[in-house]
Structure formats: C-alpha cells, structure tokens
Design a protein around this nucleic acid. Structure first.
Lengths: 347, 347
DNA sequence: TTGTAGGCGTTATCAC
DNA sequence: GTGATAACGCCTACAA
C-alpha cells in the first residue's frame, strides 16, 4: 500500500534503500552514474514509498516548471458561445500531458490585466512558455513579449499581427477563397458576410480576403459586424434581408449566428436553401443539430491545440519557430446551401 | 523602465536598498519587523527593479503553490458541445484571480489517467487544492481523495455521490419539479426525457427525480439515454415519436439535443409547440438562436464557478465545508413549449 | 560507483 | 529594528 499521509522526500528514499540522496536523484532521472543494481533498488523503494519529486523544489532547482501558460479574456459568453477555446484547450492539454506538462490558466478582465499577467509570468517564472490567443491589431501583448525573448511564446494569430513572435495561423485566406468559389459555382452573385468584432485580427483578415475574392469573381459583397451573439446575428440578417436586392447567400462568422440566421429566415417564411443559402464559419455539433443542417467551413481545432503544444515544447527546448499555418479548412456541404434562386441567376 | 532581462532576486533588491534580504522579505510581505522608512524604500526599489518573488522558491518555502487543480476528461466533443465547462472555468478563474490563485488544468484520457493525475498532485504538491467534476457513481477518485485529507477538494456533484468530500451540487431535484409542473400545468400528461450517459451521477439523479415527480402527478413518463450528441438526440427523438401514443413534451438534457429534436420535428412536419413541446436543460445562446426559441432550464454556471473558487480558498485556509447547493435553476419559458394538443388534453 | 556539499530564491527563526 | 542563518526538497558538480 503506497499510501503515505506525510510527504516523503528523496532522503527517505535514500535511507530506506541504503544509499545517498544523489544516487536516488540519478536513479530516478535515468542518468548514468549509478549501478543498475542500485538503480533498480532505488526505483523499487521509491515506488513502494509512493515518492514523487516535489514540484516546487524541482522547479527551483531546474528552473523549469513543466507548465505552459494561457491567458483568457474574461468574457464567459464569448468563451462559451463557441466551442473553439475548449477544443483548443483539449488538444493543448492532451498533447502537453504526454510530456508531463500542465496548462496554467488565468482569466484577464481586460487588456491591462492581460498585460499584468504576462508581466507576472515573466518575472515569477511560473510558466516555461505561453500561448497568446485572441491577438488584436496592434496588440500591446505582442510588443511586451517581443521585448522578453527569455519567455518562449507562440501566438495563435496571423503572421501579420504576430510581429516577431512565432505564430500558428489559420488558413483563413485559402478558406475564404474556397467558400466564395463554392457559392459562386452554385450561381450566387450577391453574397454577404456577418463577421465578428472588427477589433479582432482574424475578423479583419477574413473581411479583406472576402472583399478581394468577391471582387475578383465579379460578385457583389457586403459585410456587417457583430459581437458574435445570436442577437446581433439576427439583427444583421434582418438588415441584409431588408435590402431590395438582398444577398442570395450569407456566410456567418460562427455557428450560433448562422443558426440565428436560419431562424430569421424561418420566421420570415424564407426557404433555406431554396431562397437563401446559409453557411457557417466553424463547424460544430450545432451545425448538424440544426435543421436544415448547416453547411460549414470546418477545421480541426483540437489538432491545432496539439500542434501548438508541440511547438511550445520546441520553443522551450530552445528551438527556433517561425510563422506556421495550421491544417486547411474543409468545406462541409450540407443542406443549408443550394443553387442561387433562378431570378438571380439570370441577371 | 522596469524592464529587466535577467531575473532580479531578493538580494539584488537588498543590495540596491542597502538592507538585508530578510528585511526585504518582511517589507514585501507586509509583515512587521521593519521600520516604515525601510519598508517604503524597499518597496520603491523593488518596484523600480521590477522584482517579483520567484514562484518556485516561494512555493518551496511556504509549501503553497497558489494554484488550484482541475482534471478534465479528455473528450473534446463532450467538452465543447456544452458551454458548461467553459463557463465553470470562467467563473472559477475570475474569482481565483482576485486572490492571486491560478488554475492548473490537465486532461485525463481515461479513468486511470484521472486517478494518476490526482495521485500526482497529492505527491508533488503541485496544487493547493483541487476541484472534482463529472463525478460518476462509485467514482474511485472520491475514494482516493477521501484517504488523503491533506489535499483539499471540492466535488461539483450531488452529496449522494461525493462521500465525505465537501460538495457543491446543483439544484436538480427542485428544477425537475419545476419543469415537470410547468408542463403539467400546460396540460401535458405524457412526457419524455432524453438524458445523458447513465454513468454520470447527475443523469441518474435527474432520471429518478423525473420518475418520481411524474408518477406523483399521475403523468406517463419515459426516458431514453444518449451520449449528449445531436445524433443520439435525434435518434431518441425519432424513437419517441414513433410510438403510437407519443409524448406531447420532451425535455432534453442539453441544448444541442433539444436543437436536434427541433430539427426532427421540423423534418417530420410536426409543429412546435402546437403538436409537441420541446424543452432544454441548460440554457445557452443556442436556445435563443434556435427557431422557435427554446424554453430552457437555466442556471448561472459562471456563478457556480465563482462559488466553487470561494469554497476552495476556504478549504485551503483549513476551514470546513460541507455539502452545499448552488443557486436555483430558472425556467425560461420561450416559444418551443405550449399547451398540450387538444386530443391529449381530453384523455 | 558512490557520497558530500553547494546552490536554486524565499521564508522564517534567531541572536544582536 | 535589523541582519546572519537555517530550512524547504531537489539537482549536480566535485571528491572520494
């Protein structure tokens, strides 16, 4: 029964196995400098006693905490309205686990709190590296971290806003092309986008990519901004539908808004996809639960998390990492999109 | 410019302010034993140098990590399909932040991994306390933690499955009564529940509460189990609707399944709420984005997280905590529920 | 191969 | 009020 109430130290193990504390340390860290016989004995005794190195002591001695930090902006609604963050955390956590790393999470009420937390981690050494998410245009966090090369960081952001920091960006530009082309091929010539907050870098990036591709293909394009909630999504939809020549397809920046769009159409008796096509950016259970099932641009966020974990570990090991791109989006065509209505096609 | 590349220690502060390191420690921890003049000087110098205590050293000396642990079961779909966990984390993190505590998160691939992580935390002292979530019936984690009183734990679970551990439980029984009564008053006499996995304690608890209240009111009640995904939710709905005398109201254990239920009804041309009422357990953006808006039993999960944080801090301080209950559910009546169809009422 | 001793950065106990 | 000094538990040269 390896259950011990009081904490057992390396000295206890040393005494019980009749060797010195350093022998124990060597044995348990798999380092040479100790005979196989002793090693086995020490390992056995350590196991029997239920010994594990004290985290704080180990961290102090090695100046390695085995922890990676993640600062989240405190906005429970934003965080929970999309599965994104939880999926990212899942992948991140699962991969870190393989290397005995843990995830240290803190909530920042605002931009200053976020900066303070980063400062804190740099000074206290409470994490070996950190992941920067939700980067905004001209984000001061980027500047702060650029000044502190001693803190390994990976930004989940487009290279254009990550500065000199290593980054992992989503294949947005490519996905926008894919999505717009898909609608174009279905005959749509007037499309709209219901985007997220303009302050977020990725909203901006998608905005311009959409505008570019649409104009390239000679399509009419318009974009409205929201705060990601279904209320603002509905509102935007109503506005779009109120225009005399309204779009024949709308792409929403998240699934909750796409669902709300579906609702607006239903309440106005507009048939989906016969009269209007609806498409969601980011796929989730919600898309397959909705009726009709929502066509979505999906990507494997869990995998992004895993990839990020791998990169962070590389950075901790001192390797250099540049600007990388996560796996491609996949267009998952479902029932909410279809050929553009005939009258529009003829135009 | 308080920016320092190399880490500054307490000795640097001591030297720069012409006192000893212990004076610095006293001054910075607000303890007596140092004159106000020295204290102010030390504080000033420390700030100028951008000094902050090294986390590992502090943890080692005080045997307090300022960290609270949370083990999540690795199932990205389950984690992200519901906003629950992210909301809990938000509240938890925000409250902990106020007391300079952080959240340490680890992912457990299975039950054994979960036990191993708990064991690890007990032995390494990497967290000051931990939160136990998703407790199952006869959960071995509960037993393990009961044996280790030295590790403060709070179980987010019904008192009946938390054993001797302090617990914070949801007001499920009361909410079930509220929900069933609501449907009863609308004239429903045949209701069904689409529940989550039977292994989860709270599924079981809701199951029996439903059965009790329904029989008490003389209603017909039946229950099907799922894995929380929309696919199994749809399937269950189809089965329920295939019965000759099918229920006039269905309550789903989460919103994604309720949404799927809405979809099944729409696809079969069954009108909601005229022909069938649909209700969701747990409210989220999805409920107000759906069409018709879903009636839901809502609760403030973020607040539960905050409450949990407060209790954990108490436990860390050595206070005793028993079995507590979180705030009540709120029935948020929306468009997806209505009077039972006439033919049913007459029966 | 083994053991001894010093260091990691703080805190806390002592004499002064 | 102040300043050495010993923990805290582990790692790792360096000696034996």
């Amino acid at each position: 029964m390896p259950i011990q109430k009081s904490k057992v130290t390396i000295f206890d193990v040393a005494r019980a196995s009749g060797v010195s504390s350093s022998a124990v340390s060597y044995a348990l860290n798999g380092k040479s400098g100790v005979s196989d016989v002793t090693r086995d004995k020490v390992l056995k005794v350590a196991h029997e006693l239920g010994w594990k190195p004290n985290g704080a002591a180990q961290a102090l001695a090695k100046s390695k905490t085995q922890r990676v930090g993640l600062v989240l902006g405190y906005d429970p609604k934003l965080l929970s309205v999309e599965p994104y963050m939880m999926e990212l955390i899942s992948g991140l956590g699962a991969e870190l686990e393989k290397y005995d790393y843990s995830l240290l999470v803190r909530m920042a009420v605002d931009e200053n709190a976020k900066l303070a937390i980063i400062d804190d981690w740099i000074a206290t050494g409470n994490v070996d590296a950190m992941l920067l998410v939700n980067v905004e245009l001209g984000d001061p966090c980027v500047a702060l971290l650029e000044e502190h090369e001693e803190m390994p960081v990976l930004a989940i952001a487009d290279a254009s806003v990550a500065g000199n920091l290593p980054s992992l960006s989503s294949a947005d530009a490519d996905a926008v092309r894919q999505a717009v082309r898909y609608l174009y091929d279905l005959g749509h010539r007037q499309i709209a986008r219901v985007g997220g907050p303009e302050s977020l870098a990725h909203s901006y990036i998608r905005d311009s990519a959409f505008a570019d591709v649409a104009s390239e293909l000679g399509m009419r394009y318009r974009c409205l901004h929201t705060d990601y909630t279904p209320e603002t999504g509905s509102e935007a939809t109503k506005r779009l539908l109120s225009f005399p020549e309204h779009p024949t397809a709308i792409i929403y920046d998240n699934d909750v808004m796409a669902l709300a769009g579906l609702g607006v159409a239903a309440s106005q008796g507009i048939k989906v996809p016969e009269e209007i096509s609806i498409m969601s950016w980011d796929d989730s259970f919600m898309c397959t639960a909705a009726y009709p099932n929502l066509t979505a641009m999906g990507r494997d966020v869990v995998d992004t998390g895993k990839q990020a974990a791998g990169l962070l570990l590389k950075l901790i090991d001192g390797e250099r990492v540049g600007h990388l791109m996560e796996g491609p989006y996949e267009l998952r065509a479902r029932a909410s999109t279809g050929p553009a209505p005939a009258e529009e096609k003829m135009r």
